[in-house]
């Protein structure tokens, strides 16, 4: 399972734009109460936190598995 640091990194790779990342991060805060830009230590590997963030990103159309595959393909 990915932790929130890895999720943040994947999202950043997908958006490739700090401005866009800031907007999506703010949306995540309001949907989950959690920040992926200023991570709280207790959230980083929390299954509940990871599930909430992953679900919210999926609702916004960010498929982390697909992003990861593309990233590996580029690497």
């Amino acid at each position: 399972m990915r932790d929130l640091r890895q999720i943040r990194s994947l999202l950043g790779e997908s958006l490739m734009d700090e401005g866009k990342l800031a907007l999506v991060s703010a949306r995540l805060i309001l949907r989950t109460g959690m920040s992926i830009t200023e991570l709280r230590p207790e959230h980083v590997q929390s299954p509940a936190a990871i599930a909430k963030v992953t679900l919210a990103l999926a609702e916004m159309g960010f498929d982390l598995d697909a992003i990861s595959k593309r990233s590996k393909g580029r690497g």
Binding site: K20, L30, E59, M60, F62
Partner: peptide
């Protein structure tokens, strides 16, 4: 409504 807008256009304010 705001969530639906975010799902549609996540990087637009």
């Amino acid at each position: 409504a705001n969530d639906a807008l975010g799902n549609l256009a996540p990087t637009v304010s």
